[in-house]
Amino acid sequence: MPRFEELLEDFFYRPEEDVGALFDAGGIIEAPAAAAVEESPEEYLAFRLADETYAVRIGVVREIVKVPPLTEVPRSSAELLGVINLRGEVLPVYDLKLRLRLSTVPAPIAGPDANLAALPKSARILIVHDPEGDAGVLVDAVLEVVKLRPSTLEAPPRAVSGGDRSPITGIGRRREQLFILLDLAQALP
């Protein structure tokens, strides 16, 4: 494609992806016929990491952005992929796969050797609220908003929750589909 258009693409303000559609798309799980107590389902944002499906409470997600080239921060932990400048705000972006031991090498999206093409096309950065400061986490794909009833959540299997500070808080289930529920405050370093 001609260079001029690329330049233009780069120059024009790139609006963040609209997650509104996702909210609408979220399928409401049919309540079991005899719901003991009136219970309001909670909304989770489901996303994919490697080939597993994770979910976080929708309230912690501030926005979803495409993956720009990151700026690496020297002398930082491997989990910190780098920083992005989001409308004047400098935010750190972390690699959840390293934290969850789904991968051993950080995603190659920062520094001069960055290769964004190596990421799946659907990869996004979730900007999440956190008391220690908002941050971004890299995910392979954003899937949907799911509604899960608190009473249907299972405790994480012992074998999975290694140690007290495990970021995995439970398992959500929708028919055959599993959602691994994450506490991002624990997942972020």
Partner: peptide, 26 residues
């Protein structure tokens, strides 16, 4: 721009800036 609360302890870096080519520079 200052690095946010999570990155305050990063040594040797006082903040980040944008040089106009959409790349953030420390």
């Amino acid at each position: 721009k200052p690095l946010g609360g999570r990155l305050q302890h990063v040594r040797g870096i006082s903040g980040a800036t944008d040089l106009g080519n959409r790349r953030t520079v420390l």
